[in-house]
Design a protein around this nucleic acid. Sequence first.
DNA 1: AGCGAACTGGGTACAGTGTTCGCAATATCG
DNA 2: CGATATTGCGAACACTGTACCCAGTTCGCT
Lengths: 239, 239
Amino acid sequence: MPDHPVIWMRPEHGTRGPKPTHGRRDVAAAGVRIADAEGIDAVSMRRIAAELGTGTTSLYRYVSKKDDVLELMRDEVMGELRGTTLPAGWRPGLRTIAFLLRETALRHPWLPPLTSGRANHGPNSLWWMELTLSAFDGMDLDADEMLAALTTLSAFVLGHVLAELGDREAARRTGLTHEQWMEQQGEYGPSIMGSGRYPRLTRVMIEAETPHAADRQDRQFEAGLARVLDGLAAHLPGN
Amino acid sequence: MPDHPVIWMRPEHGTRGPKPTHGRRDVAAAGVRIADAEGIDAVSMRRIAAELGTGTTSLYRYVSKKDDVLELMRDEVMGELRGTTLPAGWRPGLRTIAFLLRETALRHPWLPPLTSGRANHGPNSLWWMELTLSAFDGMDLDADEMLAALTTLSAFVLGHVLAELGDREAARRTGLTHEQWMEQQGEYGPSIMGSGRYPRLTRVMIEAETPHAADRQDRQFEAGLARVLDGLAAHLPGN
DNA sequence: AGCGAACTGGGTACAGTGTTCGCAATATCG
DNA sequence: CGATATTGCGAACACTGTACCCAGTTCGCT
């Protein structure tokens, strides 16, 4: 009989042979450390092994494929949210949730893109889901109403964070600041505006102020979140 | 002097030597074909070259790095939206935009995850942005108001589509249907509910009906979109 | 018309990737 | 005290992107 395909259902180690030198948490933590410092592409089995001071293929004693490592890393990061308590009321609760998710994602920019894929949630993720649902305590909503609200909210947060990370991650990968990058673009922007084919876009490029503000990302998120929460409110019973 | 770093600013080919056997469109189309059929991981320089019947490194005559190929592919896909006309009114307009974006993303599931990264928009992307802005024609909004609305909307669409693709892409990568996957999970779900640590989550897992509906994704998107548009309406002048 | 410059096609090579297989050393259970 | 399960790990395989060449082709200019 093969091992259980879900890593969280496999015992961390057997009872017979030698005690393993490391544990899943070590592997996860090493992966997170590398990804934070050098990006997700730097996270290879060889690199993690080097970080732990073991042989490369020894990792396969803790994990059955690289995807497992990524799941471990995801749950490790969600563990940072342990200890969170939510304010009273669904709106402040969801607001807090959205901000915490965003902060976590920005602290670990490699995380959001991993969201693709059938997630097998580890204990920390499950705990977070439970906390998230508690934002509706005492409101007497049925399960589908809660799901609809949470799905919409997290779609917005995920999408916004991914867009934000575009800038930031590209900066890290290429080692160019936003200004150096603009420099490198050279005549591309002007050539777009000068072509006359995109009058509305040209007007926005000239007149919009948001893109030039230093805290543009924060303000856009705040503004978008307010809109989304208003939208949710309109569909909740009572309010 | 080095070539211009933005591919759209480089001439497609010089005027001197032999006529190139292919063009950028060929490279882009080959990439899209491969990605649609076998996933983005199958898109390698060697594979594209084989598809075109050329030598691998000949591709570097059309493109200066693999990232350029991905940009070409993105713009190629956006070209599918040419010919779109929007209905009158900002709400029907944005609704149409959201649905078209989603359909395109689902037709090319490898596209949304590429959204990370400073995008250099090609001609088709620029055209789409112009169309998008035209949804507000005659409303006398300032540039920042339009940006706020569009940023929020596209964050939601991107996030939702990414979540949807989780299922679908994992299915393609692993070759397992949703049912086979559930089977493989085995006792994991029940063990979560049985642990007693997640009462709210357990209730949702039991009572929610949305996750079991065949058209759950469509309905969730529709419902979320309605909420987001309501939220946008609340912040637009006049309405 | 003829020549040099610009350009295209493509082979070779290199450093890296995830993972399978096999084997020696070791700790626990019956 | 075996028998058995488990750990650590090196070797090997089939991939990846792309820098560096060199030969052959075609245009622009004199």
